[in-house]
Design a protein around this nucleic acid. Sequence first.
DNA 1: ACAGTAGCGGAATGAGCATTCCGCTCTTGC
DNA 2: GCAAGAGCGGAATGCTCATTCCGCTACTGT
Lengths: 208, 208
Amino acid sequence: MSIPLLQRTKVAEDCWSALDAHEKRARLLRAAGDVFAREGLQAPMPAVAAAAGAGVGSVYRQFPSKRDLLAALVVERLQETERGAEAALAGEHDRWSALTGLLWMLAERQASDDVLGEAMATVSEHPAVAEALNETLVSLQRLLAAARSEGALRADATTLDLRLLFAATRAANQLQAGAWRRMLELGIDALRAPQPGRGAVSDASTHV
Amino acid sequence: MSIPLLQRTKVAEDCWSALDAHEKRARLLRAAGDVFAREGLQAPMPAVAAAAGAGVGSVYRQFPSKRDLLAALVVERLQETERGAEAALAGEHDRWSALTGLLWMLAERQASDDVLGEAMATVSEHPAVAEALNETLVSLQRLLAAARSEGALRADATTLDLRLLFAATRAANQLQAGAWRRMLELGIDALRAPQPGRGAVSDASTHV
DNA sequence: ACAGTAGCGGAATGAGCATTCCGCTCTTGC
DNA sequence: GCAAGAGCGGAATGCTCATTCCGCTACTGT
């Protein structure tokens, strides 16, 4: 069941064990993501361990507590988001298209596997999560700034608006499968700059 | 601690015990609402019992399970909403004002004590809740129809839109206290009929 | 080939909670 | 005033986990 053959060799053992640990961690994270997505956040640790083909002990060696495991999962997703934002910023299209494209991608992913939203709420206080969130928000902020300078994004849009949008799509989807699409369309419309329009998704423009 | 004096008298004992049971039930419900609002839905039953100045046994005599207690709480709130809708329908103002007024009131209440949203998700399958929800939706539906006939509400707005709106305000508020206001303003704007506007909160107009 | 040990799997432990059970009290009916 | 019993409070029970602990296996270095 395990992959002991990859463990420590006489050559550069630190290097090997490091690589190995990394792979094991990734495997656990993937299994945890699957299990939590399928059974909800209350899925027991032993189930996660089993899904990863490991014993609980091994899970706890990588993640000191369930909370830490959840946090790692969330951080992973946040980093993906950050990379997505960076890519959007560097892409060929105009920033507005890049931004909306990113939002659709993220929302779709969230819709197909909602755990992360709930997990985020559970571990938002976790140091690692807080840090990752900050970094992600910085990237998103830059993307917003770029889109704004191109005139496509309403002037007072902030990253809080984006977060509100995600919260809303998630809520919508819990109420009725597929409802997230409409909610997102609506939100994106509200984010668009044009015309004299009325309000934005948020008036709290003093946040990152 | 208890109010034994009100129990059974020789006069019309069914009547008395019924009234008494009703009062006790109400007291439990109030206590449960407080406790859950303060400590979250995972608050232990003994805590609820203590808050009501009763023993767990008494709680279980009224509500066979925690789930039933939660359901009763949700049903109560739904009925309030229903009454609110009826009142709005019968009020003096135009239906649009009545509708938005109702939405503001309900959203504010939800913001100040969020449990019900979560509880609703937990027990939405419960028969009693399903039934109460249906009735509430019927009333809201009538209010919507009235507002629509006055021309203030967009033609394709449904009660699902209202539910989405509540889900969204709740989500917004969880992210940032007070954010529900903006979200609600936005949603109400989207519900307004006027001009050629773009989209509604939902495109699923085939639901009650 | 052998002793030493890192890392593993999963049994064992402990805590928290919903729910059940029971002895006790206060009220009733005579 | 007394026996019967309705309804009460809260101790006891049983179960589900998170987390800890430990004997075992497989690889290392000699």
